[in-house]
Design a protein around this nucleic acid. Structure first.
Lengths: 140, 140
DNA sequence: ATTGCTGCAAACTCTTTGCAAGTTC
DNA sequence: GAACTTGCAAAGAGTTTGCAGCAAT
């Protein structure tokens, strides 16, 4: 994700372009693997040592509110963040706290079809994600 | 859930039967709707005023470790607990933090069939849950 | 110039821990 | 009586808040 795209993303959402915000966005996109708050803070401290932690929390909140990023959480895990992109699901390791994206267009189709026929009473569906729990057979 | 079943559940899991544990189990089953820690604590304080908060946390941890209850979490929400029962999915309100169970045997079949044919590389599936996000059209 | 953002440090909330005293089997 | 469980209070982690000063448009 290059600088121009990051700047466009901020502008499009009515946010001022600041070094702190570009750093946070870049961090999340660079790390990819659902970084938690601590990892984001560490990453940014490496590149911009004098960004305040409180500021990072505020920026993450802002991004979530604008829909620029998503929060992902499981069980005893900390908060993690996810660059918003295409519809994808999550694989959760039941032994470690590893999370991976899982893309499956065929599955999306099946689920979309299913819910276009069958409605849930008194509920208006906006988004469906699968949480697939299990074990990774190989390490990262 | 009556007292005998609660006692059996504890014994079966090698746990000693104490008033605190039966109170926590009863609380979760009575409240049903995915109570969070605070609600559980309040409930128990009402019935057994001198149970320590630390004890409740320890009991919840123990129950989760034994698989007697599950943890459920979303986004900025606190930890919530769920009596382990049949396979069910969750409806999450995108506006409030309401969570409801969603049972759909037909859907379970479709997903089970799908993954019995298609494997996820290097991943051994144990459990699949849908997180269905949207809006409730009526209040509770 | 105006509005919005950041840094800082203090405060908060939720959760965990250690250990002595008390319970359960 | 042995092993386990609880209460308590203190500490810890992660997150939020308020506000003065600074930066972006």
């Amino acid at each position: 994700m290059d600088g121009q795209i990051i700047r466009d993303t901020l502008t499009k959402n009515g946010l001022k372009i600041t070094p702190q915000r570009t750093a946070v966005l870049k961090a999340i996109h660079t790390m990819g693997n659902h970084p938690d708050t601590e990892q984001i803070i560490e990453f940014i401290k490496g590149h911009h040592p004098n960004v305040a932690i409180g500021t990072i929390y505020k920026i993450l909140d802002t991004f979530v509110a604008k829909g620029i990023i998503n929060m992902v959480k499981t069980d005893r895990d900390k908060m993690r963040y996810d660059a918003v992109s295409d519809l994808h699901h999550h694989l959760y390791c039941s032994e470690t706290s590893r999370i991976e994206d899982y893309y499956d267009e065929e599955l999306n189709q099946i689920i979309t079809n299913y819910f276009s026929e069958k409605e849930i009473p008194d509920f208006d569906i906006e988004d469906i994600k699968l949480q697939i729990k299990g074990k990774f057979l190989k390490n990262e």
